[in-house]
């Protein structure tokens, strides 16, 4: 079976069965490895992408249902052209191993799109599905606040 996905503004063809989750279509089908596998059961958030602007766990979305506009970490910003949230991440030196960070950043981007100046409680609520085994939570919180200020300042 072949499916057409709209990923980061481009149409991409994937030849995999329709029940294969979007996560694996991206990683194995399209060689887009920025989106990570952590649990496969919606418990860790490592696989978070945006579909039509909303943060979703790509390990839970069958390829056949991924009909919206998908944004992955690769589409958010690139080295040399970082999105504000990524600039804040670098400034606060958030990552340790970095494995969870694609998911954290996508979740944070969705939060900031919805709530431009989130409170600590907003951050707690939005980010609680994203695990970080290295324990970078304090710096993630600081980076989200910083990104909010940067976006506000334009």
């Amino acid at each position: 079976m072949s499916f057409t996905l709209s990923v980061n503004g481009a149409l991409r063809q994937v030849d995999l069965p329709g029940d294969v989750p979007l996560l694996w279509a991206l990683r194995d089908g399209l060689a887009m490895t920025g989106t990570k596998f952590g649990c496969g059961v919606a418990a860790c958030g490592a696989c978070t992408v945006l579909i039509d602007g909303e943060a979703v766990r790509s390990c839970q979305v069958p390829l056949a249902d991924a009909t919206g506009k998908i944004t992955t970490i690769e589409g958010l910003g690139q080295p040399g052209a970082l999105a504000p949230v990524q600039v804040a991440w670098v400034k606060h030196q958030v990552a340790q191993c970095g494995y969870c960070q694609s998911g954290q950043i996508m979740q944070a981007a969705a939060l900031l799109a919805q709530i431009p100046d989130p409170s600590d409680q907003d951050i707690d609520e939005a980010m609680q599905g994203n695990l970080c085994r290295c324990g970078t939570y304090p710096r993630i919180r600081a980076a989200i606040h910083e990104a909010a200020q940067m976006i506000k300042a334009g």
Binding site: G34, T72, I73, L76, L82, Q86, V90, V94, A95, G98
Partner: peptide
């Protein structure tokens, strides 16, 4: 490694 880890390029 920070930029790579903030952009999914690591």
């Amino acid at each position: 490694d920070m930029v790579a880890k903030a952009t999914g390029t690591e």
